[in-house]
Design a protein around this nucleic acid. Sequence first.
DNA 1: TAGTGGTCTAGACCACGAG
DNA 2: TCGTGGTCTAGACCACTAC
Lengths: 255, 255
Amino acid sequence: MGQGQLSAVPEPKYWHLRTVLVRTIDAEFSTGQILPNERELAARFGVARATLRQALDQLELEGRLVRRRGIGTVIAAPRVGVPVNREEGWPGAQRSQAWRVVDCTTAPATPQIAARLGIKPGAIVHTVRRLRLVQGKAMAAESLYVPDAAVPNLPGFTAEGDRARSVLRRLERQGIDGESRSVELGVAEAAEAALLERPPGTPVLVVTTQYAAAGKLAALAVSTYRADTCKLTFGETGAVEVTPVPADAAVRTAS
Amino acid sequence: MGQGQLSAVPEPKYWHLRTVLVRTIDAEFSTGQILPNERELAARFGVARATLRQALDQLELEGRLVRRRGIGTVIAAPRVGVPVNREEGWPGAQRSQAWRVVDCTTAPATPQIAARLGIKPGAIVHTVRRLRLVQGKAMAAESLYVPDAAVPNLPGFTAEGDRARSVLRRLERQGIDGESRSVELGVAEAAEAALLERPPGTPVLVVTTQYAAAGKLAALAVSTYRADTCKLTFGETGAVEVTPVPADAAVRTAS
DNA sequence: TAGTGGTCTAGACCACGAG
DNA sequence: TCGTGGTCTAGACCACTAC
């Protein structure tokens, strides 16, 4: 691993440092390998540790590095392509082991949720929290909001696991007419962060899905995907699979 | 604006500070207003400026704040919903003023691009860079890679504006059979950052689209959307528009 | 010129993981 | 116990904007 000596350029040190590190990583390191520790790297490049960390922050945001306290900074595996579509996301897809129910609550809707569901504030809403596992790892946490009116006359279960299953089965049975989605950047709050086994503030891709059935909004799903390890994929009709998924990044840089 | 006094909790100061700031902003500030300056805020909450900045970093990542050097920290407007679909993205949609061509180059493909296009390295590829304007502001920068084989016998224009138009018109005429997309988090490199009028390292949503025509990959688009101001929307068939876009955030918190 | 956010430093201590 | 990354501090200087 080269020595460095940042030239006196008008760009910030941490940005130049990032560029140098990208080159070094691509050339001399491979997935799973551990970088020298931060204090040594900082010394090697002649910068303060905080400045080095600023560069590492960037690389972590890009999914190139994972930093583990007590372990070190390791080269991350390429991001996992996670299909986001009706088959994968809709509660009906119980057959695919993609989602695992965490818990389920039934309560009057908060004003915000009511507004987004298009129902009266205070109307009963079931909230099913689920966890999406990919290759055995928690990749996304979801809150699925279902107006009680959309799944009327639920059996009077007491166990929340039973109610969750009941709600999901109802949705599955009635099917959906369509869905509309949005994706934006967010940070994981405490609860989500815990489910995703990450610290609070972890960047996430927030996927908001509206499921329509019988001309009404049947459910609203807010899913937070780990931005460090996930690449959301949206397959579409008629698409031709050409690329056998080449390496991974470095392509945007190569424009 | 309240005084603060961070309680001695086991969570990091900057995270607690973020929570306090979120509440304060939601309660006492509205879009466009300017927060007290960083030095004063730090003093008010009894923390170092760096710690305060860590909290502000989070809020900026969430799109709640925009910090302008020489001006101050202002409350950001809600994110703009940006439609991402065939009508908006496909070069054929010249009628919509969404995209503006920046430049166009014709050159042998780099190994990375060749691999992703499923062509031989060194084969000729046209690269059209475009800028997506929403409400007059630059929201996304795109590199559209088109194998020369997909648009054969282009007229021998010299001006790159003409060649760009020519390539796009060809694509438009032949139409597409389908497309497949992926979305992931990235940071803006120097060139993209300049187009987006943001500093290098700005977080972006990277949308990669494969356009298929006649059973082959006709084009590959890599678009980088400003993560701070954009919410990507994917409209779908049969979807029911229920929400008239309520306020904005704060809903995920309210789960 | 004065005020803002952006960068950078040198140091300290803490929390976690492995031995 | 030791080494790692995570947090926090107090201060300095720079770059940009407005006046």
